[in-house]
Design a protein around this nucleic acid. Structure first.
Length: 162
DNA sequence: GCCAACGTTGGC
DNA sequence: GCCAACGTTGGC
């Protein structure tokens, strides 16, 4: 079984968000959004080092009634400092972050395309081709995960096929 | 709301 | 560098 880093390099990603915090509908309304609040080094490194403009992102709703992939978007700007880390009023505040050393970074995502048929986690689990997905690994909590091209294509097909 | 699994922290 | 304690994630 591949580790997350063994998926690299890739042009395809899965990003998790709790819809109560930031939903795909929010992205559709706002058109684009700076992905702030990531406070995990592995996820940060994916954004800082590997996510490039034009890379495809599958948008996953977690911690909600029907967890699953609800649509697609893409990277529209490469990583820049996450200023919420320097804001003592933010819930993402990190007292160690400074202008000189911002520590945390985020990409900007945009160009949302809703799936005519969102893909619930239940359905992903039933796919023969997707049994190896990082998302399905026990205890996997990474909020940004690389996808293989084959995984991405299978998922797109599920989302776009009635 | 529960709780298993994980990442991080900090004492030693 | 170990590892127990703690906080967080996220499905259920």
């Amino acid at each position: 079984m591949k580790t997350a880093n063994e998926y690299l390099p890739t042009k395809y990603w899965l990003m998790k968000s709790e819809p109560s915090t930031f939903s795909f509908q929010n992205l559709t309304t706002k058109k684009s959004e700076f992905w702030d609040g990531v406070r995990n080094y592995q996820a940060r490194n994916f954004m800082m080092q590997h996510m490039k403009v034009g890379h495809k992102i599958l948008f996953y709703h977690s911690n909600c009634q029907t967890p699953g992939i609800i649509g697609e978007c893409e990277v529209v700007a490469e990583a820049s400092p996450d200023l919420t880390a320097q804001d003592s009023n933010s819930k993402y505040y990190d007292p160690n972050a400074t202008t000189q050393n911002p520590i945390w970074y985020g990409v900007t995502v945009g160009k949302p395309i809703p799936f005519p048929k969102p893909i619930p986690l239940d359905l992903i689990k039933k796919q023969e081709k997707l049994t190896e997905m990082l998302l399905l690994r026990r205890g996997q909590r990474l909020s940004i995960q690389p996808l293989s091209e084959a995984e991405y294509k299978s998922l797109i097909e599920l989302g776009l096929t009635p």
